[in-house]
């Protein structure tokens, strides 16, 4: 990785997308999932990416998370040109800058919450004692300080998502990238989780990018980006009734 931007200040550009295309081959057919998407997300933003199914939201999310690279166009995360990085550099970039929260929680089964949360720290090369301490701290932050040694199967859906959030913030990333984080939860628990995201955004200054169907979640963001057929059709504050 060439460029380096350690602590970014609020309002500085964190992610810059310029003319992003993403094409796949589905059998013999070429699918154009993203067709020339450009926008910028600055540090500390609270943003929802919305749109109907098949609009390219998921592709967008994997690209933003550096799990995938664009077919064309430029994506810079914290100053790094993502398509120029090797597999190992991408792994390091994800580890350092991004925390993922998934709809299905994706905790590792038969593994205690504290070990689940500590997982990213292991790949960051943090020592074992320190890992446990910081994982416990993150669990404390999401209100699960009393559930350190539980395995995921003994937790409720809301608790599992909190563990996943703890895992996402344990490395103190710049970006929380969430894929339908309340999709598997009932509305009351979903609202609590949304509230937790807002707190983290406010208190830690972490940039919050949420890919969602949920209009109530989109409404609470300060900015909505709407995708239809792989193109940005709206970029601005949430609109009532959308």
């Amino acid at each position: 990785m060439s460029a380096s931007t350690d602590a970014l200040a609020l309002g500085e550009p964190l992610m810059v997308l310029d003319g992003i295309h993403r094409r796949f081959m589905m059998g013999d057919e070429e699918v154009r999932a993203l067709r020339g998407v450009s926008f910028t997300i600055t540090k500390g933003e609270h943003l929802c990416i919305i749109g109907p199914s098949g609009s390219g939201k998921s592709t967008m999310m994997y690209l933003l998370g550096c799990l995938d690279t664009p077919s064309e166009g430029s994506y810079q995360l914290a100053g790094y040109e993502v398509s120029e990085l090797s597999d190992e550099e991408l792994a390091a970039l994800r580890n350092r800058y991004i925390g993922f929260v998934f709809q299905a929680f994706n905790l590792i089964p038969r593994t205690t919450t504290v070990d689940n949360v500590a997982l990213p720290l292991r790949y960051a090369g943090v020592g074992m004692g320190e890992r446990r301490r910081r994982a416990a701290e993150a669990l404390e932050r999401v209100g699960l300080g009393h559930r350190l040694d539980h395995t995921p199967d003994r937790l409720s859906g809301g608790e599992r998502q909190r563990v996943a959030i703890a895992r996402a913030i344990v490395t103190k990333p710049e970006l929380l990238l969430c894929d339908e984080p309340t999709g598997n939860l009932d509305s009351k628990v979903g609202a609590e989780i949304t509230g937790l995201f807002e707190e983290l955004n406010h208190d830690m200054g972490v940039t919050l990018v949420i890919v969602t169907h949920d209009p109530s979640m989109a409404k609470r963001a300060r900015r909505n980006v709407k995708l239809v057929d792989g193109e940005v059709v709206y970029d601005g504050p949430p609109i009532e009734g959308r």
Partner: peptide
Amino acid sequence: REIGVRRAVGATKS
């Protein structure tokens, strides 16, 4: 999926 999660949180291929 576990492998996917590990890759997402920073595990390299090796």
